[in-house]
């Protein structure tokens, strides 16, 4: 099977996303997130190149700045300050959850060809754009469900957001630019607020295991 550049980049981003599931070392997770987002930026630039939509270049630059450069560094700084290194007691062992992620990639492939209306707008008859986006969504959900550390939860949210972003660039001719920029700003502010909360969780509870936050119930 010959992959076009578009398909290769989409798959690369999905696979790099799945690799995040492969380790519980938070610093490695952040690095993989960085590379995974970089692949998405490259894909955005490539789509901008084939569709000649100039505003995609600006969006790609903004994503590069916020999600590749700033957010992982910020979270790395939070990790260092809060003195947390790894997410030791994941509900499912890392290798197993990575394999689950790979299985979900296959499921996404089947699903995206079944659900009507999901063929990409840039590549006639190719479902790989939506396959990658859906697989990244599942990866994010898996991260949030199987990990306990507050930082993994933030990362899971970021991966889900990347999946949605990928849907937006592969399924449409680019969302309106103001919307894209507003979205990036929200992600940025959201990550900063939750980073600050993470400090406070560490300070009050002396751990960042959010599965132990169960005091409030009926």
């Amino acid at each position: 099977m010959q992959l076009s550049t578009f398909e290769a980049l989409a798959m690369l981003s999905a696979v790099l996303g799945i690799l995040i599931l492969g380790t519980t070392l938070l610093r490695t997770n952040l690095s993989f997130y960085r590379f995974h987002t970089l692949a998405i930026v490259a894909l955005t630039v490539w789509i901008g190149h084939i569709t000649k939509e100039a505003h995609l270049y600006i969006v790609a630059a903004a994503v590069l700045l916020v999600k590749v450069l700033f957010i992982p560094s910020f979270l790395g700084w939070v990790m260092k300050k809060a003195e947390v290194g790894s997410d030791k007691q994941a509900f499912i062992a890392a290798p197993l959850s990575m394999h689950l992620g790979a299985i979900m990639l296959g499921v996404s492939y089947l699903l995206s060809s079944r659900i009507p209306g999901l063929e990409g707008v840039h590549q006639e008859g190719s479902h790989l754009g939506s396959t990658a986006a859906m697989s990244i969504l599942f990866t994010g959900v898996l991260l949030m469900l199987t990990r306990r550390a507050a930082l993994s939860q933030i990362l899971g949210f970021l991966v889900i957001e990347n999946g949605i972003y990928l849907f937006a660039v592969t399924q449409t001719h680019g969302m309106p630019m103001l919307v894209e920029m507003g979205l990036l700003l929200e992600v940025l502010v959201g990550v900063m607020i939750s980073g600050l909360l993470l400090f406070n969780i560490k300070k009050s509870f002396e751990h960042i295991d959010v599965s132990q936050l169960t005091d409030l119930k009926d």
Binding site: M144, A150, E161, I164, S194, L197, L213
Partner: peptide
Amino acid sequence: LEATWKYLIVCSVGIAFALLGTVF
């Protein structure tokens, strides 16, 4: 702290799905 964390994470993820809906 517990309430805020749950609020922020659950609502953000929930709303992320609304964004997916908006994209569709």
